[in-house]
């Protein structure tokens, strides 16, 4: 009934997708941890990162670089998308959120939703760029094929399991990033400043921490992780579209909440869980109900463990 190889195969897919979700979830969790804002635009920043990657593939002709050249190409894509998404996220904070720090939370959220829509529309326009990779830009809204720069062959030969270089790429990119980020938050001055601002921005600014710059840096790092995630996602799933940000954002946010918002290990745990749940639901229940199941999980966590699996209790000061 339950074939072990099918199960393991789904587990591998689930974990790989889960790592990508976790990488996006960290972007949500960092920003929420520091200014208590659900950055709705984060999913769309991720989407734009994928569009930039596809543009780079077309402009630099990476497909024709040969096997080892393509690995270098992927590195270029990763760096390019990360820088782009980081800067984009930073500018969103600078233009749309910074001036609203003192106004109500509702205005900040509304502003974030507005940014999300603006980014989504930019993605639609981007899809209409007359380049070959965008199918000449004729059907701007249609999903785009992302070339499989990392070959989808089975590294285990004809074994009953299938692990592709794309799986390895996902792990090779995400795990070092997460370790690096954890060290940064724990050990560096910036990390300490970030934790201080998250605790109490007023006190932090009185201690001489440049609060706005620290928040800006948080947005940049969160965005950059989204950029890495976008390239890995595109290479793993080979199709991108301007509306993929909303879906990915929902999953990533669910992961962040599941793990405990504000907690980095929580985001990773949540991401992996959601990835696996999606894969298992696709396999053993029905593909068309997967989104509904993930949503039900979100609601259930919020009822029973609103602070998530690893999150700490937040107290409002009275």
């Amino acid at each position: 009934m339950l074939d072990l190889d099918v199960f393991l195969q789904q587990l591998i897919t689930g974990l790989s997708n889960g790592m990508i979700i976790a990488l996006i979830a960290i972007g949500y969790t960092m920003v929420y941890g520091i200014i208590e804002l659900i950055n709705f635009a984060h999913g769309d920043v991720f989407m734009l990162g994928a569009f930039l990657a596809l543009t780079l593939v077309g402009a630099l002709g990476i497909e024709a670089w040969g096997p080892s050249g393509q690995v270098a190409g992927v590195a270029v894509l990763l760096v390019g998308s990360a820088l782009f998404c980081g800067s984009l996220n930073w500018s969103l904070d600078r233009c749309a959120y910074r001036s609203l720090r003192k106004s109500s939370k509702l205005s900040l959220l509304v502003s974030a939703i507005g940014c999300s829509f603006i980014c989504m529309n930019l993605g639609l326009f981007w899809g209409g760029v007359p380049m070959e990779v965008f199918a000449g830009g004729n059907a701007a809204a249609a999903p785009k094929d992302f070339p499989a720069l990392i070959p989808q062959v089975n590294l285990l030969g004809d074994g009953f399991l299938r692990i592709t270089p794309a799986d390895l790429l996902v792990w090779a990119v995400t795990i070092p990033l997460m370790i690096g980020l954890t060290i940064m938050v724990k050990r560096t001055r910036l990390g300490r400043a970030m934790r201080a601002v998250a605790q109490d921005p007023v006190a932090a600014s009185l201690m001489g921490i440049p609060v706005d710059r620290v928040i800006g840096a948080t947005f940049f790092i969160g965005g950059a992780l989204g950029g890495f995630a976008s390239v890995v996602y595109s290479l793993y799933n080979n199709t991108i579209g301007f509306q993929m940000g909303t879906r990915a954002g929902m999953d990533a946010f669910t992961a962040a909440v599941l793990g405990g918002i504000g907690s980095l290990p929580g985001a990773v745990l949540g991401g992996l869980t959601i990835g696996c749940v999606r894969a298992m639901s696709d396999q053993y229940l029905e593909l068309r109900w997967t989104n509904t199941i993930v949503f039900c999980i979100l609601v259930l966590i919020l009822i029973f463990r609103p602070n998530g699996l690893l999150g700490a209790t937040r107290r409002e000061k009275v």
């Binding site: 749309a96 001036s99 609203l100 106004s103 205005s107 509304v110 502003s111 939703i113 507005g114 940014c115 999300s116 829509f117 603006i118 980014c119 989504m120 529309n121 930019l122 639609l124 326009f125 209409g128 701007a140």
Partner: peptide, 16 residues
């Protein structure tokens, strides 16, 4: 195709 942009700008600018 400008719909999202208009909605988004309306929200951001109105709040601001």
């Amino acid at each position: 195709n400008w719909k999202f942009l208009i909605f988004g700008l309306a929200l951001v600018l109105a709040v601001r």
